[in-house]
Design a protein around this nucleic acid. Structure first.
Length: 737
RNA sequence: GGAGCCGUAGCUCAGUUGGCUAGAGCGUUUCGUUGACAUCGAAAAGGCCGCAGGUUCAAGUCCUGCCGGCUCCACCA
């Protein structure tokens, strides 16, 4: 046995050994355990967050496999719609190109190629981490069979009245040139200015109502001024009219609950086209929606003298003019939170636009019911509350995007005029298509318009929110379809555990539950395990700009994969942030080293002895029965931790037991007798070591396998080490899924 | 405005349904090993478990309030 374990040279061949034994394939028999890997985005390489989640998953999977479950870990990769498009556009920008320079076809193909390359990279990195997934079942969100089901789901939702197309207020990202769902918008607190502006009364132009606004450039789009119905100051004005400054258009003064009496002057300008609250007020009071800012970020023709200006230039001009007219009362500093694009950090422009929406309430109802009935367990439990809280206030989900990267929405339009105004603007090349305006939702392109027989229906140029396809991931990856369940689906659905980060509880987990129930009538997974974020040594969030990121690849090269894996897991509370730094990783390497050396010692002593295969002794009746009993007590305790998914605690206890009980006590106590050919002592050491190797294996698969292989080479140990791979050894504890 | 979390050794953090003589890693001190250990072992120092009340035979653990930090959600003009 070598004096040291060399992860750098040993790991790759150990991984090959597992593949050779088809270890990662589910066995035919036994109870089933399945875990669908959250697909990493195919637009970058492995970071420490990937390492954490995939390690946690691999631990659960390896434990289940060792405990005798027919175990499937299904890997996948995500095309990651808007995120990938932003990443790829940045690459293009370095060559001074935009997606429009390439055109849709070329862009799509180049992006596809880019994703394929990234996919290969990340898969090889996952293998380096020791991930025991069944790579033959690897899925990509753009695989034809996956897209097929996703499209069908859209059609079915539409048939069931759960998808509709409507003009509503959306989040428009001027940089990405697409709308976003609410969950893709980040709110940041910003210092801004609050302008107090006089609106003259129509019937008495010497009298004014003063409103407060942060966006004077949208004044031309005002269609009302609103006050709170209980505000005594303004009671006499309600029902009368004011003149909108800059364009001199009369608008009504209305009363609405949404207006806060205490804020500003208690009177607010209502701009339904550019503000979510105002949009709702507009709906309630049947107000017109006038657009001041176009999707091109320029002021529209309805904005008087501001027309044609960019919105940033329009504001100072508006202020200047108001001031000149003597209508600007004062300016105050204000702190308020403003939405930004999660991907490119550009400030969101609220707009009214015709988009596809999912009517979410009916789906949410079922998803809440399932959780309340205990069909899905949350680990840690506190996320159940967060889930329920979110679901109770959920809003309809906008699923159409104007980006190019991703599958297109299966809606077909008879003629250019049926497209939304935004789509018309963005797709002038389709302009020649004439038609009756009919819309068909179907997976395949209709041969002709069912109404007017036009043979050239055009497809909706928009793509799906990438999360629409992700929300169906557990179903699509297992081969679900709307006709006949596949073998994998029958065998492994619902999956046992969904492990992912708590930061995508709403955007992904909640939606998978809704879609799973909708598509199959069953929950997609029985347990949700949510892990926390990774921080550095001093508890800081890792970020490139702070320069405190840890590159898992470098760590693995330097300290070995096992050191990284155990450092990410040991002693970490459930769902809590993990602090990882070089010292913790070193501690991991020490542990790997300790495992190797303890094994080496036992191996050498065993080799020197007269031990032969038949010398295995029943330890429960030996003079060492107390040691064995203590070991069994530990196993019980350990079993409890693992069944509660407390891997941080479990691995900590395991380390302690192994190091300070087995190495420091048991080995030391039995050393002399073992040297003196006490075969019972030797087989005791061997038996204990074998259990420790098995227990450590899910956490530190490489060093444990390497040791196991050494023992396998000597047939004298074959009764105690009865299987070829440590992973095939009967796990000394029971798991209950 | 709503929801959730955290505050335990110098640092980063564990501590499950209340039973703790409060733990780990790293760091510090002393001694010992270098024939399993790019070390390892034995021992030690170091904690009003944020603060104040309450429940209890018993509270780091449950309840209330306060102080400090964080996260998420929300229609703060």
């Amino acid at each position: 046995m070598d004096k040291r374990f060399q992860p750098q040279t040993a790991e790759a061949s150990i991984y090959q050994l597992w593949l050779k034994h088809k270890l990662f394939k589910p066995k035919d028999r036994g109870r089933r355990f399945s875990l669908i890997m959250p697909p990493p985005n195919a637009n970058g390489s492995l970071h420490i967050g990937h390492a954490l989640f995939v390690t946690l998953e691999d631990i659960m999977v390896r434990m289940a496999r060792m405990a005798g479950y027919s175990t499937l870990m299904l890997p996948g990769v995500d095309h990651a719609g808007i995120q990938t498009q932003v990443v790829f556009e940045r690459l293009l920008a370095k060559k001074s190109k935009s997606r429009f320079d390439l055109g849709y076809q070329t862009f799509y193909q180049a992006c596809f190629k880019f994703c394929q390359d990234q996919k290969e990279t990340i898969i090889s990195q996952f293998k380096k981490l020791g991930v025991s997934a069944d790579w033959d079942r690897l899925k990509f969100t753009l695989d034809p069979d996956i897209i097929d089901v996703v499209l069908e789901t859209f059609v079915k939702l539409h048939q069931d009245g759960l998808i509709y197309r409507k003009d509503r207020l959306v989040n428009w990202c001027p940089r990405c040139q697409t709308v976003l769902s609410d969950l893709e918008v980040e709110h940041k607190d910003l210092k801004d200015k609050l302008y107090y502006v006089k609106y003259p009364l129509v019937d008495k132009p010497t009298e004014f109502i003063v409103i407060a606004t942060t966006r004077p450039e949208t004044i031309p789009a005002d269609t009302a001024v609103a006050v709170n119905p209980d505000d005594k100051r303004y009671k006499k004005y309600v029902g009368r009219q004011v003149m909108v400054p800059l364009i001199n258009r009369p608008v009504p003064i209305i009363a609405d609950e949404a207006v806060e009496i205490k804020f500003g002057t208690g009177a607010v300008k209502v701009t339904p086209a550019h503000d979510p609250v105002d949009f709702d007020i507009g709906q309630r009071h049947n107000l017109k929606s006038i657009r001041a800012i176009g999707f091109d970020d320029e002021m529209t023709s309805l904005t008087g003298e501001l027309v044609g200006l960019s919105k940033t230039k329009a504001r100072p001009l508006a202020i200047k003019q108001l001031d000149k007219l003597g209508l600007l009362v004062k300016v105050e500093e204000i702190n308020h939170s403003v939405g930004h694009c999660e991907r490119c950090k550009t400030r969101i422009e609220p707009m009214v636009s015709l988009q596809w929406w999912i009517k979410i309430r009916p789906l949410a109802q079922e998803a809440v019911k399932a959780v309340n009935q205990g069909k899905i367990k949350f680990v840690p439990i506190r996320f159940k509350k967060q889930y329920l809280n979110w679901m109770s206030q959920i809003k309809d989900w906008c699923i159409s995007r104007q980006i190019w990267w991703g599958p297109k929405i299966p809606a077909w339009y008879c003629g250019f005029d049926a497209l939304s105004p935004l789509q018309q603007m963005m797709n002038p090349n389709l302009k020649g298509n004439k038609g009756c305006g009919h819309i068909v939702v179907s997976k395949a392109k209709p041969k002709k318009c069912p109404k007017c027989s036009n043979p050239n229906m055009i497809q909706d140029p928009d793509t799906f929110d990438t999360w629409f396809s992700s929300s169906q991931w557990p179903m699509t990856t297992l081969g679900f379809n709307y006709r006949q369940p596949t073998d994998d689906f029958k065998a492994f659905y619902p999956t046992t555990i969904m492990e992912t980060g708590y930061d995508i509880l709403y955007i992904w987990v909640a939606r998978m539950i809704m879609m799973g129930l909708y598509m199959t009538g069953q929950v997609p997974f029985k347990t949700v395990y949510l892990h926390g974020l990774i921080r550095d040594d001093s508890g800081q969030k890792m970020s490139k700009s702070k320069g405190n990121v840890i590159n898992p690849i470098e760590i693995m090269d330097k300290y070995g994969t096992d050191a990284l894996r155990i450092a990410l897991i040991i002693g970490v509370g459930q769902g809590e942030a993990t602090s990882v730094g070089e010292t913790k990783i070193k501690a991991g390497r020490y542990l790997a080293n300790k495992i190797w050396n303890a094994s080496r010692f036992v191996f050498l002593i065993g080799q020197k002895s007269n031990l032969v295969a038949k010398d295995y002794t029943d330890l429960k009746d030996s003079q060492y029965k107390d040691i064995w009993r203590q070991h069994e007590l530990f196993l019980k305790d350990y079993e409890k931790e693992v069944n509660k998914y407390r891997f941080g605690q479990a691995s900590d206890k395991l380390r302690h037991q192994f190091w300070h009980r087995f190495c420091d006590k048991t080995i030391e106590d039995l050393k002399d007798r073992a040297y003196n050919q006490d075969l019972v002592a030797i087989s005791l050491l061997l038996s204990l070591l074998r259990d420790y190797l098995a227990l450590f294996h899910p956490f530190m698969p490489f060093v444990t396998e390497a040791v196991w292989q050494v023992f396998r080479q000597d047939e004298r140990f074959s009764l105690i080490f009865p299987t070829e791979l440590v992973a095939e050894f009967k796990y000394p504890i029971k798991l209950d899924y």
